[in-house]
Amino acid sequence: MNYRINDIDRVIKNAIHVMEDSKYQIFEICESARQELLLITQELETVFKETAETIDKVDRLELDYRRSRIRLTEVSRDFVRYKEADIKAAYEKATQIQLDLMVYREKEAYLKSRRDELQKRVKNVEQSIERAETISSQVNVVLEYLSGDLNQVTRILESAKNRQAIGLKIIVAQEEERKRIAREIHDGPAQSLAHLVLRTEIAERMLQKKEFGLVQDELVDLKGQVRLGIEEIRKIIFNLRPMALDDLGLVPTLRKYVQDFEEKARIRTTFETVGREVRLPSAMEAAIYRLVQEAYTNALKHASPSIVSLGITYQAQIVKIVIQDNGTGFHVDLTEARAKDNSSFGLIGMRERVELLEGRMEIESAINQGTKITIHIPINAEPRKE
Rank of each mutant, 00 (worst) to 15 (best):
A90H: 07
Y296H: 05
R121M: 11
V322M: 08
V332P: 03
R180I: 08
R279V: 02
V125Q: 02
Y65C: 06
V125A: 01
R255D: 15
N124C: 09
E355D: 09
V18S: 11
Q324E: 15
I267L: 07
H302C: 05
G359E: 02
E43M: 05
E362G: 00
T54M: 07
A381N: 11
K264P: 02
P305W: 03
G213V: 06
V139A: 08
L193I: 09
V122N: 04
N14Q: 13
M1Y: 10
A303N: 08
L250Y: 06
S309H: 03
D100P: 00
G188S: 05
R67W: 06
Y289A: 03
L228W: 02
T269W: 03
E28V: 08
S344E: 13
E201R: 06
V11C: 09
Y314L: 03
E175G: 02
A299I: 01
L254D: 02
R183I: 09
N124V: 13
I156N: 12
E201H: 06
V172Y: 10
K169R: 15
S136K: 11
A33D: 12
A303C: 04
D217I: 00
A33Q: 11
A190I: 02
E126T: 06
T73E: 15
S113K: 10
A109T: 14
R234V: 07
I171A: 04
C30Q: 14
Q152F: 12
V141T: 11
V226M: 12
R279H: 06
L280W: 00
T54S: 09
E50Q: 12
L250M: 05
P242Y: 05
Q216L: 10
A366V: 05
V11A: 13
A337E: 14
R360E: 13
L207V: 04
E108L: 13
I171P: 03
L44R: 10
I29P: 00
K88T: 10
R338H: 12
N298W: 04
